[in-house]
């Protein structure tokens, strides 16, 4: 005589899980269905041509793909020395104490600031600064552009990469490190020859997750990348990323095929980030399990 209310309760809880599952599958299906028209219209040239002219119904998303990849990779590269330094600082040199708490709170703060504010600050502080540099260099002083966007992205993902890398570094068994110290290794040698080899795949996974994040970042990039639908020729050129072109044009997209083209860009963006995320998470999960067992 199983109680009715228990059955009911279980059904409700179960349906919450099913609901979440349906929500996400619905999300994928919606994107695919609404992206179909543009693929039917342009075929694969949607991915491989670089003319984006909605008026003449030409949709080549290549500039956005390239813009996204360049901005994100550049952003991650710029951020690496900083995020890894923080990770080693917090994971190895100062795992506890006042300084560690201060750093921890500061990076938390950095992670908590909304992205639109990074964009705003970038537009009004970093872009003019870049403009000066560009004048010095004797190139077109746009101010906004790929370089500016990468810098802002780098600032935004530092705390994210740092916290993942720190967790990974903390997983390094202390007896390994102690064994190295006992052999007379210096601190740096321990980091170089024990910590880094042990943690490198985890750190790489963390970088991958950060890249996924950088690719999907919308507002800050939209505000400082200059929004130009052409193939960028230098890293100081204005450009567009997948996210920023959606943010800019989606509300104005008048006809169905244009809308579908933007949704196809969203689908690509979704696939890109999902693949990076799944892979990064997979690696990190594996490492954590290895550590626990």
């Amino acid at each position: 005589m199983k109680q009715l209310s228990d059955t009911l309760f279980n059904a409700v809880v179960r349906s919450c899980a099913i609901g979440t599952l349906i929500l996400v599958s619905g999300l994928c299906v919606t994107l695919v269905i609404h992206a179909m028209p543009v693929f039917r219209h342009s075929g694969l040239s949607f991915l491989f041509t670089s003319t984006w002219d909605p008026l003449r119904q030409q949709f080549g998303a290549l500039p956005f793909l390239v813009g996204t990849v360049i901005t994100a990779v550049l952003g991650v590269l710029i951020s690496l020395p900083f995020s890894l330094s923080i990770a080693f600082f917090l994971g190895e040199y100062f795992p506890s104490g006042k300084l560690s708490i201060f750093f921890q709170s500061a990076t938390d703060l950095l992670a908590g600031i909304p992205s639109v504010i990074y964009g705003f600050w970038g537009l009004f502080v970093v872009a003019p600064f870049m403009q000066k540099i560009e004048i010095r260099l004797g190139i077109m002083p746009y101010g906004v552009g790929i370089a500016t966007a990468s810098i802002i992205l780098a600032i935004m993902i530092v705390p994210y990469t740092a916290s993942i890398a720190r967790e990974i570094i903390k997983l390094v068994p202390s007896d390994l490190k102690e064994a190295a110290y006992a052999l007379g290794a210096t601190r740096w040698e321990v980091v170089r020859h024990v910590v880094i080899p042990y943690a490198h795949s985890g750190i790489l996974a963390g970088i991958l997750l950060a890249l996924g994040r950088a690719i999907g970042e919308t507002m800050a990039v939209t505000m400082v990348i200059g929004n130009r639908n052409e193939f960028p020729k230098s890293i100081f050129d204005p450009a567009n990323t997948m996210a920023s072109v959606i943010a800019n044009e989606f509300a104005e997209a008048s006809d169905d095929i244009y809308l579908s083209a933007l949704i196809a860009v969203a689908l690509l963006l979704f696939l890109f980030t999902t693949v990076m995320n799944m892979f990064g998470r997979f690696v990190i999960k594996k490492l954590t399990v290895r550590q626990e067992s």
Binding site: T20, L31, G216
Partner: peptide, 25 residues
Amino acid sequence: LSYWTRVAVDILQGSPSIVMGVVVY
């Protein structure tokens, strides 16, 4: 069900916010 729900939540956590905007639109 748990396995796939976890996968779904992971996907959701990692997807860009602009995509939610598009889908809810």
